[in-house]
Simulated assay, not measured.
Amino acid sequence: MYVKTVIMLMLYFLPYCCIVLGFGASSIWLFLGFWLLMAVGMCGIGTAVMHDANHGTYSRNKKVNNFISHVLEVIGGYTVTWKIQHNVLHHTYTNVAGLDEDIDSIIFLRLSPNQKYYWFHRYQYLYAWFFYMMMTLFWMTAKDYLQVIRYKQHDLLIKQKVSLPQAVFRITLYKLFYYSYILVLPILFAGVAWYWVIAGFLLMHFAAGLFLSCVFQPSHVMESSAFLMPVLKEGKSQMEDSWAIHEVANTTDFAPNNRILSWFIGGLNYQIEHHLFTGVCHVHYRKLAPIVRATAKQYGLPYHLQPTFLRALLEHARMLKRLGKRP
């Protein structure tokens, strides 16, 4: 994990230093290439470093986990809102419309058969990729503010031991730091026109947003997913299946033999294992997967698996088209 962390940080900060030092001023293509390389580093930091740290699995030492988790603020995010959306909501209520914010995004995307249908959803399998490109850009600008207000209304900030004013102040401070180094310094020192800096910044986020979406969406928004909703039992709303069975039924693994992809995305192609064992570092998923698959077969449970990354994307696109049909 330490070696991977150094590599991912270098992938992000070395091209950034090249930009600020003016090494890309001689060629716009080289300049934009540096931003694309930063997108690679940004994805690697998010999936293979920050993700484990915020789950508490980067290290056995809680202080190390807490320290490494704040690399998220360095790339423009906020750990508190990330933990609530991902650790609390997504991992507890996977694919449950109205609770899992990973599928409750914008009105233009229908990512569950339990969400309201609009006529324009018939084209979402074509335009969804554009909105996927916008994911990290929206996250780095407005999303954190909108989330803390919503989480305050639902008393979700309490367990994170932060008040709404504190959260808003910290987000603002982190955003000022982020935009100061990611935009202001390159505009001042890169040796290119300001609009090329903006173009490079947007290119970085479009590339990172698209790739990250293509990693996460095929893990859950698939035709094989159950998408079951809570039912009333004895006057209480509850799930029919246990939590573990619900996770297996709504999650898909892909590309188990692609060691390079798995290394880069922090084992998130083993999404079933990640959802069942959130307290285990991703370096162990590859060996956990055959055990989980055999156990699922033993008890007659589904184990959704796509052989390649491309096949998983194609199946996700097919699901987008299916969800775009009038119910």
Results as ranks from 00 to 15, higher is better:
Ile84Cys: 04
Ile84Gln: 02
Gln85His: 11
Gln85Phe: 07
His86Asn: 09
His86Val: 09
Asn87Leu: 13
Val88Arg: 11
Val88Leu: 15
Val88Glu: 15
Leu89Cys: 11
His90Ser: 09
His90Val: 03
His91Ser: 06
His91Glu: 08
Thr92Gly: 08
Thr92Tyr: 13
Thr92Pro: 00
Tyr93Ile: 06
Thr94Asp: 10
Thr94Tyr: 09
Asn95Phe: 09
Asn95Lys: 05
Val96Tyr: 13
Val96Gly: 05
Ala97His: 13
Gly98Asp: 08
Leu99Ile: 05
Leu99Val: 04
Leu99Ala: 10
Asp102Ile: 06
Asp102Phe: 03
Asp102Trp: 01
Ile103Arg: 04
Ile103Pro: 01
Ile103Val: 10
Asp104Trp: 11
Asp104Gly: 07
Asp104Glu: 15
Ser105Cys: 07
Ser105Asp: 14
Ser105Gly: 04
Ile106Leu: 14
Ile106Ala: 07
Ile107Phe: 11
Ile107Asn: 11
Leu109Gly: 04
Leu109Phe: 11
Leu109His: 02
Leu109Lys: 03
Arg110Leu: 09
Arg110Met: 12
Arg110Val: 03
Leu111Ala: 08
Leu111Gly: 08
Ser112Asp: 02
Pro113Ala: 12
Pro113His: 06
Asn114His: 14
Gln115Ile: 10
Gln115Cys: 10
Gln115Met: 13
Tyr117Leu: 07
Tyr117Ile: 05
Tyr117Pro: 00
Tyr118Gly: 03
Tyr118Cys: 11
Trp119Met: 05
Phe120Trp: 14
Phe120Arg: 00
Phe120His: 05
His121Gln: 02
Arg122Met: 11
Arg122Glu: 06
Gln124Lys: 05
Gln124Pro: 06
Tyr125Ser: 12
Tyr125Gly: 11
Tyr125Arg: 11
Leu126Ile: 15
Leu126Trp: 09
Leu126Cys: 07
Tyr127Asp: 00
Tyr127His: 03
Ala128Gln: 06
Trp129Gly: 01
Trp129Lys: 02
Phe130Trp: 14
Phe131Pro: 00
Tyr132Ser: 02
Tyr132Ile: 00
Tyr132Lys: 01
